[in-house]
Design a binder for these strands. Sequence first.
DNA 1: TCAATACTTTGTCCAAGACAAAAATATGAA
DNA 2: TTCATATTTTTGTCTTGGACAAAGTATTGA
Lengths: 315, 315
Amino acid sequence: MNTDPVALPIASVERETGLSKDTLRVWERRYGFPVPARDAKGERLYPLGQVRRLVQIKRLIDRGHRPGKLLTLDEGALAALDAPLDAERPEISTRHLDRWMHLVKTHDHEAMQALFRRDLFRCGMSRFVQDIAAPLIARVGDAWARNQIGVFEEHLFSQHLEKLFRSALSGLALNDGRPRVLLTTLSGEEHTLGLLMVEALLTVEDAYPVLLGPQTPVSEIVRAALAKEIDAVCLSFSSAYPVSLATQGVIELRRSLPADICIWAGGYGVKSLRKPPGGVCLIPEFADLFACLGAWRQTRQTDPLPRQGKHTEDN
Amino acid sequence: MNTDPVALPIASVERETGLSKDTLRVWERRYGFPVPARDAKGERLYPLGQVRRLVQIKRLIDRGHRPGKLLTLDEGALAALDAPLDAERPEISTRHLDRWMHLVKTHDHEAMQALFRRDLFRCGMSRFVQDIAAPLIARVGDAWARNQIGVFEEHLFSQHLEKLFRSALSGLALNDGRPRVLLTTLSGEEHTLGLLMVEALLTVEDAYPVLLGPQTPVSEIVRAALAKEIDAVCLSFSSAYPVSLATQGVIELRRSLPADICIWAGGYGVKSLRKPPGGVCLIPEFADLFACLGAWRQTRQTDPLPRQGKHTEDN
DNA sequence: TCAATACTTTGTCCAAGACAAAAATATGAA
DNA sequence: TTCATATTTTTGTCTTGGACAAAGTATTGA
């Protein structure tokens, strides 16, 4: 009686791919792909194959390709574009990540937990996040998108990673460092793992993170920032979050927030953004977080004049 | 200084209120509210006042009111609906809880964290959950529904409670106890705190909780239960979760799950259920969890034959 | 090489109609 | 009464094709 869905309605495809319903419909009209089947009601039903291809296309768009090109390509040409990235991606210990993926697929949570601890103590929080946790999350997300693992395996993995970070954090005393950074996501973005990783990094870097949890409306972020005397607001966007919503939300936040409070926007969701909205720092990789942190400390801890200013600002 | 936006485009309103663009447009067409202004392009611009009212309406809908009624009401009648939730709540040991609520309202998270720890060590996990955490969550939820506190205060409170439970749990070794209980919620139910509290209680009671996180589809719950050799599946329902969805989901789960795996359904969301669907235990209060646990152990811990008497070796 | 211009691509918005799932209400039986 | 079933209303999501501006690309001129 198990109902394996062979095709998804448009709302599900929107969620799975991060492409808006409008975009899906206009692509069909303009480029002739995707061409979903229709149910009795005349509504679109996207076969899983097309959904997978859409995910692949979305990934390529985020990497800088243009939709008009991609959508006219056939299966093979698409795969050809997908491959060369693998070569350039720094293959940090693929072997080790493979071992991890095996544990995820076999949902062996005891072994997972043990390996988490071992890896964390072996390479330290900062390297653990950048070299293991972040790429692993990406791979698990990928595997899920390709239907190689189920919801259950993904959930179990997330929960154990979350457990690890939280227990690591509970062992760290929080001293009154600077900057004070508010961590949250905009409404609609549910993923908390990114925030937890940032919290961990900030803690070991002697900053003062304030974790607000996911899905805070802009107006409430502003209230929180003022009440807790925040220096910077850090937002996290997963790859599924619509880019347009992200940029619009960030711009709105920038408008509503005092100019002396920085905005840092991170996560896979901002990788596709070429140029940041004015007054916002992009953090596509965790390494960039350290850059932001350093920049903030330099401008605030020394005098307020910007060092590398091109213009002679004081006349 | 910075131009305070006096009106928001439809995408922003979707993000802030959680109402889809389609819904916003169809409400305007059907009920005559909201009536946004238009920009030069003819696109909707929602004044902040209307956005606030939409947020209020959404909250009332989540509480069970119907859109058709709410949208024809004026300002005053709407506010009147926001108040009268008072009478029905039992007021337990209010003095201490009042102190708590004060911390929540002043969002003093350092003091919150400290008081959490103190209370937990003073009265032990089991009493802490039943006498402090659970009623406090109810009161905070209430206060939020009545607009006495904002999203920001509610988020901060939840995060710190979660942090507390997770750090307490990370200190407890998990031994191979029985029953093995799978903890999760059905799709649509996002709240994790209930699961964490159950995890804490089960751990101190020498059971073996497997936390799967929120929003698992029924079919995946079944997969997980079989793979992890689960004895009981425990679901949590917050008060916001529609009762009909809850019963339907539970019934479906009961159908798909082997008969020897128990189903325990807990949380505020099941309090209104008079009679449980066949083969399902209801846990409206945390105290009932202990009853379920005891019952399971009595039937299973002796040998597989349904023998009522205790073993002689104990006496 | 760089900046300003003109052209192309692309995502979002709009309108009004349609329909089924959910909720409320009515009806009948134990 | 209380429960189960049928009927009506409510309500959110999906449909179509057209329009438009912002972002991206190509072209031009210094």
